[in-house]
């Protein structure tokens, strides 16, 4: 529990340390001379046309999905790695099978063209 208090304090301090100079900059030291032209989004000197928040291309979702597969797999892999001293040889073979099935999934995505950037 003590360790996690330390982590919590660290996250808090990690927010305060960069937050303080930012506030110092934007509230106290920095000049405040706004005008509509200055505040407009940068686009090589011309007005932005249309809405900025467009849809993501579907390709990004496919890569994210393939990543999720590997992310979930790692959740299983790390506890296995920690308990590695105790596991028997056939369990290691089972884990190998698990990874091979996963590699099969990658191969499937590859063959289906999900990994091509179009």
């Amino acid at each position: 529990m003590n360790e996690w208090t330390f982590i919590g304090l660290f996250l808090l301090m990690g927010a305060i340390f960069p937050g303080a100079p930012i506030l110092l900059n934007s509230l106290i030291l920095g000049p405040k001379k706004n005008n509509p032209v200055k505040n407009s989004p940068y686009e090589c000197g011309i007005e932005t046309v249309g809405d900025t928040w467009v849809q993501f291309k579907v390709q990004y979702y496919i890569f994210a999905l393939v990543f999720v597969v590997f992310g979930v797999e790692t959740i299983f892999l790390f506890p296995f790695a920690v308990a590695f001293q105790q596991v028997a040889l056939f369990m290691v073979v089972e884990m190998t099978l698990f990874i091979v099935i996963l590699a099969g999934g990658l191969l499937y995505a590859w063959r289906k063209g999900a990994l091509e950037w179009v």
Partner: peptide
């Protein structure tokens, strides 16, 4: 130098 620069938030 960064500390005394203006802080701009773009419109929208």
């Amino acid at each position: 130098k960064l500390l005394i620069k203006e802080d701009i938030t773009p419109t929208g």
